[in-house]
């Protein structure tokens, strides 16, 4: 097994389809390329397939119940073709993951230090003392106060923010190239969220990590990501740089997400806009654009076949028949708000 040292992207996903139990198609044809050192945020509501996509990269979805189609390449190597040994060598060492709720993602009956040491020793075959020293370094890197003492703490003895820092320390313990973060701030207090986001951004720059970041929080996405990919019903409906997607969205769903945010752009006294309806039943997909039943621009052709992928700008694409109209509608409303 040779480590590819080329210019291949950190992660390349082509035509990924994930089906659970033979019926529920959670991911329906995702193409995504994560360049080296890049940070991409996958955005979407619950059940849009973003976490499933993330887990598929390490093949963490339950093997027996999951059918995966398409190609997944990590540093040019085909993850789908990997055997058990290659897979365990990949996980934690090349690609590491941060989970949403660190209290649930850490083993409750092991100290946090032992869990980090375990990961290091699994991949590097070094002694316990050396592994402990490395774990301590990790704790210092994620800025955990009195790190020596915290190594011997159990997960339930730490605060939420501290636990997430420990989780990050664990993920980065073997110096992975790719970091997958599954809603790393969702379970935390608002003030702690920002600290963790800043920490992740700093670490990403410092270590040159390629990061794929799943969230349903647009603000968090803008904070850490270079690029944003918006997912709906298992497909990427819009992808572009963070600026392109947030300031010049071309897909009605992205626009809906942006409008439904309660932020400064919302005039006082006005109603918070929501997207009507609910996501489609993934076990019983209808033809056409999956967003059509909820879309404010939908027309007949949207319900018949898949929408085309339209280039909205350099490196900016949206899967919709009516990208221009959508973008115009968004800019018009923005101008209106700016005038008011």
């Amino acid at each position: 097994m040779t480590r590819a040292v080329g210019k291949e992207p950190a992660v390349e996903i082509q035509g990924l389809k994930v089906t659970f139990g033979g019926k529920v198609r959670a991911v329906d044809g995702v193409d995504l390329t994560l360049g080296r050192g890049q940070a991409i945020a996958l955005i979407g509501e619950s059940g849009s397939g973003k976490s499933v996509t993330l887990r598929a990269i390490m093949r963490l979805n339950p093997e027996r119940k999951t059918a995966i189609e398409g190609r997944i390449l990590v540093a040019g190597r085909d993850v789908m073709a990997m055997g058990k040994r290659d897979l365990t060598a990949l996980r934690g060492r090349e690609v590491a993951m941060i989970f949403q709720e660190p209290l649930l993602a850490l083993d409750p009956v092991y100290t946090v230090g032992r869990q980090i040491m375990e990961a290091i020793r699994q991949h590097e075959g070094i002694g316990a003392a050396e592994a402990r020293a490395r774990a301590l370094q990790q704790f210092e890197r994620v800025r955990i106060p009195s790190p020596e003492r915290r190594l011997d703490a159990y997960p339930h003895e730490m605060s939420g923010g501290m636990r997430q820092r420990a989780m990050i320390a664990l993920a980065l313990a073997c110096n992975p190239k790719v970091l997958l973060a599954d809603e790393p701030t969702t379970a935390l207090d608002a003030t702690v969220q920002i600290q963790i986001l800043l920490l992740l951004r700093d670490l990403q720059a410092e270590l040159g990590l390629s990061t794929l970041f799943v969230t349903h929080d647009l603000g968090a996405a803008v904070e850490v990501a270079d690029r944003i990919a918006v997912m709906y019903a298992g497909r990427i409906v819009e992808e572009g740089s963070a600026r392109q997607v947030v300031l010049n969205p071309h897909h009605p769903y992205t626009i809906g997400l942006l409008r439904s945010r309660a932020d400064g752009a919302l005039a006082k006294g006005s109603r918070l806009q929501t997207i009507p309806g609910s996501p489609p039943d993934l076990a019983n997909r209808q033809p056409g654009c999956p967003f059509a039943p909820r879309c404010f621009l939908a027309e007949e052709r949207c319900r018949v076949g898949d929408p085309p992928v339209v280039e909205a700008g350099p490196g900016h694409r949206a899967a919709c028949w009516k990208t221009d109209e959508a973008a115009r509608s968004f800019q018009a409303q923005r101008a209106e708000l700016a005038d008011a």
Partner: peptide, 17 residues
């Protein structure tokens, strides 16, 4: 069925680990 089992696999532990 708990999350930490997935997390253990994610850090590269073998099934025996």
């Amino acid at each position: 069925s708990q999350d930490f089992v997935g997390a253990l696999r994610a850090k590269g532990l073998s099934e025996f680990g």
